[in-house]
Design a protein around this nucleic acid. Structure first.
Lengths: 243, 243
DNA sequence: AGGAGTTTTGGTAGAATTTACTACAATGAC
DNA sequence: GTCATTGTAGTAAATTCTACCAAAACTCCT
């Protein structure tokens, strides 16, 4: 069972402030880059460190509302997927707890988001501003945010394997190669070759050919497909690809 | 994106009390029953309703510590698996919020636990006491606990499919039939037949034959196996069975 | 003791899927 | 037209899944 503190019998009930921190991913399909949204802190603690975009939950606001509020303060985006990730709350995880004479605690409920990169605009006014970072080249973050980021990346890979979240952020119509590039930039190139990826996805039967074709430079034009939500419904929780 | 409340610009930061609620499962392998631990509430709100065992987090106590504290107040158990489930925090989810003139919020961080049934003892002193309920026959619970319970059951099934949590609560040595019965009482009987279940588990290679045999009534004696953690390590996240 | 019943164990044939690879089609560039 | 490039279709071999079957090793009953 491990070493757990079971001795705090006479401790009072703790008072908490609750923060929401967002792990916001985006896939730049032009350059095959997996990006993460970070903000640079201006104030202590961890001044000048990068951190995940976060906020404290306000009165009357749900956790998910707070998560959407952070998003809308940093970026303009219409197409996204968002879900709760994990709640971090050990005593001492936030240095502000030590400075608070009332012994108040800080809890972090983290959310995971995947947003469309192409028609998303960073909001440049406001303070601090948010910037995209390469996930592979992300810096040491404030608080325990590196841990939250790692947790979020695991969730992203898992979700991509089992859920159709890619279609929330891909354009309305897309080629099978677009889809393959999306998967490879997130998962790495060792999960399937293109030909077998095509065959598998098409056999699953939730991609409908629009009849349209698109030519991008040299080579045969590619068919444009559309995600059919209704056709997907029947295969809930079946893996889409194998890593 | 749905309808989210983005208008609370001038709201103050909320103050929270944080509760931990445990979804505690147990498998009675003698009678093939899937059980859930519930307590009967003595006080308002929801007096005389059953609820998940829960507590408020104390000063200096981590969330996981609180989860273990609840467990140790209700049952004596040495063999268990525990992990965080989900955090519920919409305004108004706890009726106490309305009675509180300071507008304090109540957050519930839920934990999921699977405990060994056989050598677990319910603690009968204390108030309220905890009792095992059949999951299939669980009553209407206090607060939003039915939702948390459903969420926990989904997690249990998922974990059983992908993680070796069964071996945390099975005896040190067990027969393949023991294991099969465990899986069928949790997942239902439609995931695999016994012969194929055996073949699959043995081929995965993390069950080592102890050489011992056990005879339970009529029939050929069964070989006793042991879970080999080291041999399992290589196949992290591969499915163990198919539902 | 011996046969009947029961449970464990180790298969196998056929279907289905995965994997690695090849051939062909349709286009732009020259 | 020819070639490089990208998209598409397919196949053969290996592997896995599924639905069974039969022998082995015991207990129980008469």
């Amino acid at each position: 069972m491990g070493n757990h503190n079971l001795t705090s019998i006479e401790q009072p009930i703790a008072e908490f402030k609750v923060g929401v921190d967002n792990v916001i991913f985006s896939v730049d399909t032009q350059q095959n880059r997996l990006l993460i949204l970070l903000v640079k802190r201006k104030k202590a603690p961890f001044a000048n460190f990068f951190s995940l975009p976060g906020t404290l939950v306000k009165a009357g606001e749900s956790l998910e509302d707070a998560a959407y509020r952070i998003l809308s303060e940093k970026i303009e985006v219409d197409n996204l997927y968002l879900e709760q990730l994990y709640t971090f709350g050990e005593p001492g995880r936030d240095p502000r707890e030590n400075q608070d004479i009332f012994g108040e605690r800080y809890l972090s409920v983290s959310y995971f988001a995947l947003v469309r990169y192409e028609d998303t605009h960073l909001i440049t006014k406001g303070n601090p501003q948010a910037v995209w970072h390469l996930l592979n080249d992300s810096p040491k973050l404030a608080f325990d945010h590196n841990r939250i980021l790692d947790y979020g990346y695991q969730r992203l890979k898992n979700k991509l394997e089992y859920s159709p979240i890619a279609f929330k952020v891909l354009p309305e119509v897309f080629t099978l190669n677009d889809l393959y590039q999306f998967y490879t930039t997130v998962l790495g190139e060792n999960f399937s070759d293109y030909s077998n990826f095509r065959a598998r996805l098409l056999k699953l039967g939730f991609l409908t050919d629009t009849g349209l074709k698109v030519s991008r430079g040299a080579g045969r034009p590619a068919a444009l497909y559309r995600f059919d939500e209704e056709a997907f419904a029947v295969l809930q929780d079946k893996p889409l690809v194998f890593i």
